[in-house]
């Protein structure tokens, strides 16, 4: 294990981004990914370990106009306890309800979940369905600057994001879905929360008379990153969710995923799960 030469605990975003600008920094939030990954030797520490827990700009959940801003340090427990998240971002709330154990939820942050960029990351699936974007902060020349990146562009592959080493993930912004939007998150694993998802689905839509509008569907653990399913959404958009439409949606979905076989499931089983569970989730969502 590489030695940590410096341990930093900045107390403002300006200070944190200044430390990042100097380079060779490992960011620490809840530590639930970082500690096991470094102890197992899968990830090596940079010479500077920066604990961002005391940076106030990374805290809090707030409604700002048509957007919900969730600070990077917000824990899964805080998301579960938020009436705003439960009321308006139901599929994100459900994903948090399926996340690990109480002990992990109390420590794990949404920023850590995003930056860890697991193809099975539980908050990533609903956040992608909800068109979230991440706010990245850096201090290239004396002043803190931020850029906003759609989540779909932020995630590049397993454990890989477009975050530059000098950038900090400050927050994730979620546009409020239209009134009447309802959906469901489903995660398949053998131990309810603690399992890494074999597959996961976040799906939602708005009922407009007999037909569906604003259909959003995202999948986890069936591609190198969590993915949106635009062709599946197009099949459902403006249609009544009858048996023929659901069958067409499943057909489209199976064309959009590229599952692999690993210890948790074979690619065949993942396809079966996506087909069957997508149908179930859509049927539930349509009844809401």
């Amino acid at each position: 294990m590489a030695d940590i030469e410096r341990y930093k605990t900045p107390t403002s975003l300006a200070e944190a981004t200044e430390i990042l600008r100097a380079g060779n920094v490992t960011v620490l939030a809840g530590g639930t990914d970082l500690l096991p990954q470094t102890q197992a030797g899968r990830v090596h520490f940079q010479p500077t370990l920066m604990n961002v827990r005391r940076v106030p700009e990374l805290q809090g959940i707030a409604e700002e106009g048509a957007v919900v801003r969730i600070g990077a340090l917000v824990t899964i427990t805080e998301l579960l306890e938020s009436a705003l998240v439960r009321g308006r971002l139901g599929i994100l709330w459900q994903a948090c309800d399926h996340f690990a154990s109480d002990q992990i939820r109390n420590a794990a942050t949404v920023g850590g979940n995003l930056c860890n960029a697991s193809p099975a990351g539980d908050t990533l699936v609903p956040l992608l369905a909800l068109d979230a974007r991440v706010v990245l902060a850096a201090k290239p020349d004396g002043a803190v600057q931020t850029r906003r990146v759609p989540l779909a562009e932020f995630l590049l592959g397993p454990g890989r994001t477009c975050r530059a080493p000098t950038e900090l993930l400050a927050a994730v912004e979620v546009p409020l879905p239209p009134a009447g939007f309802a959906g469901e998150f489903y995660k398949h694993g053998t131990r309810p929360g603690l399992d890494i998802a074999a597959i996961s689905i976040a799906a939602g839509a708005r009922r407009d008379g007999a037909v569906l509008r604003d259909v959003r569907i995202a999948f986890g653990a069936v591609a190198p990153t969590v993915i949106r399913a635009p062709r599946t959404e197009a099949v459902l958009e403006g249609r009544a969710p009858d048996a023929a439409t659901l069958a067409a949606a499943v057909h489209a979905a199976l064309g959009e995923i590229q599952p692999i076989s690993d210890v948790r499931a074979s690619d065949w089983y993942r396809r079966e799960l996506i087909g069957n569970i997508l149908k179930r989730v859509l049927t539930h969502a349509c009844q809401m």
């Binding site: 530590g31 639930t32 500690l35 604990n51 002990q103």
Partner: peptide, 18 residues
């Protein structure tokens, strides 16, 4: 499992420095 600021966490996943 231990309590930190009133919430439970896995102490094996927490840095002592934290």
């Amino acid at each position: 499992t231990i309590l930190v600021d009133g919430s439970t966490v896995n102490s094996c996943l927490m840095f002592a420095a934290d």
